[in-house]
Design a binder for these strands. Structure first.
Length: 446
DNA sequence: TTTTGAGTTGTTCGA
DNA sequence: GTCGAACAACTCAAA
């Protein structure tokens, strides 16, 4: 009896799964495999890894315990398992990150030595990165024209579910590493969350998405990260909500940029600011990480990140801007901290979002756009509820007063820290640094 | 080839 | 308090 392997990666679901359909075609028995790749599990205590393990537990439950886990180098493990079950083909969703592409090239070569094939069907995106190109065949570098071409390109409807898949159950599995269980992990939870959002806050998304106090965004980022739900499923039901579709498109745009420019994961995409002077991370960086900068909105966000492994997007921008433009720290330091703490940590979205804030990214914000953390708080958390939720030292202040504790006699009565930098001075410093970096390069003579 | 319009998310200052 | 201008120049995409 023919057997194929479905090697799960960022597609931890059983419905709307083209690679699963391909693997099970013709009644083929399918071995569901996940590889615990040491190269990806180095940060084993990160929230992202914990979220992955919780999702794997949910997938295994959905498979009635059939999921096979193997630890090791994928090119060795896949070849060995394929030999073990004599599978002619290993099916995957196409991976387009720098590491994923290198890995899959090696795995395909290893399989071919035994006359077996790595077959990619579908990807974690509505439009697979690399497929949207300008008329001249080069990739887009600006979001708006990309989004138009992406919409024109279009995407398939959600795939049928493969209900009658025969799963192979006979081979040994390594144990799932210890992790903190999470009720929100897994395909069923993702579908339920989407249904609730679709029938609830989606209608007000355009007006309320920037309000961290209302907390009315979809919270689907981690589910999308691990493919518990596919963006196709969301897009099929998000007609008439262009802002929500645009946010999904940002995810695809950044994946596309990373596909074409893999080095941009950790290096400035735009060399314009190559001469920028940054400060090494020091005590103020530690204060930023801990949510102790003395700027309430920044601190609320950084504490939400530590407490929940998630932060509202508006606050991600403000806190990232604060690190880069108020503390003058190079964006990769901040991006690394976010990736270590975010359950939804995605290299393309996270790091290119940071580059956008820093002014080094594609389609970057103008350098003089420096968020005022106080103004942002008054505007997007007008009643102060978000700050009070995460900063207990400020709970005695009412309404928007939480955003300016220095104005009130009892503002620091409960131990809230003083501001680590002065906004106006830090802003002026940032503008001066950008101005200096933009000067034509001067030749220094020894 | 050249031209033209446009580019996620803002802040400050002065009238 | 409100409003418009300044903050810059450059690159991108398409006609």
């Amino acid at each position: 009896m023919a057997t194929s392997i479905l090697w799960f990666r960022r597609d931890l679901r059983l419905t709307d799964h083209p690679a699963l359909i391909a693997a099970a075609e013709g009644g083929t028995t399918v071995l569901p495999l996940f590889i615990l790749d040491p190269a990806l599990l180095r940060s084993a205590d990160s929230r992202r890894t914990n979220r992955l393990l919780a999702s794997l537990a949910a997938l295994n439950d959905a498979l009635d315990g059939a999921l096979v886990l193997r630890r090791g180098d994928p090119s060795e493990v896949v070849r060995a398992v394929a030999w073990e079950v004599d599978a002619a083909a290993v099916h995957v969703s196409e991976e387009t990150t720098p590491y994923g592409r290198r890995r899959d090239t090696r795995v395909a070569a290893a399989l071919e030595q035994d006359g077996r094939w790595l077959i990619a069907t579908g990807s974690p995106y509505a439009v697979t990165p690399g497929r949207v190109l300008k008329d001249d065949g080069t990739p887009y570098r600006v979001f708006t024209p990309f989004s138009k071409a992406w919409q024109s390109h279009g995407w398939r409807a959600p795939a049928d579910s493969a209900r009658d898949t025969r799963w192979l159950r006979e081979i040994a599995s390594d144990d799932l590493p210890e992790h903190e269980p999470q009720a929100e992990a897994g395909e069923a939870a993702a579908l339920a969350r989407w249904a609730a959002f679709r029938d609830g806050d989606l209608a007000g998304y355009n007006a309320q998405r920037d309000r961290p106090d209302l907390d009315s965004t979809s919270h689907l980022s981690a589910a999308l990260k691990y493919g518990e739900i596919h963006p196709r499923t969301l897009l099929a039901e998000a007609h008439g909500h262009p802002r929500f579709v645009a946010e999904l498109c940002w995810r695809e745009f950044y994946a596309d940029v990373l596909y074409h420019r893999p080095e941009s994961a950790w290096a400035d995409l735009n060399p314009t600011l190559a001469g920028m002077t940054y400060d090494a991370p020091g005590p103020e960086f530690a204060a930023w990480q801990a949510g102790m900068t003395g700027y309430p909105l920044v601190d609320a966000g950084m504490r939400q990140l530590l407490a929940e492994g998630w932060m509202h997007n508006r606050v991600r921008m403000v806190s990232a801007s604060f690190l880069v433009k108020h503390l003058h720290v190079w964006w990769p330091h901040g991006a690394r901290h976010f990736l270590a703490q975010l359950a939804d940590g995605d290299i393309a979205s996270n790091n290119h979002g940071w580059q956008w804030v820093a002014g080094t990214g594609t389609d970057a914000a103008p350098y003089f756009r420096i968020f005022n953390p106080v103004t942002q708080g008054l505007k997007f958390d007008p009643d102060g509820n978000y700050v009070r939720r995460y900063v207990p030292e400020l709970r005695h202040l009412e309404g928007s007063a939480v955003h300016e504790p220095w104005r009130w006699g009892d503002g620091y009565a409960h131990g809230y820290p003083q501001r680590v930098v002065d906004h106006a001075a830090a802003r002026a410093d940032a503008l001066a640094r950008y101005a200096a970096a933009r000067q034509p390069a001067t030749v220094e003579h020894a």
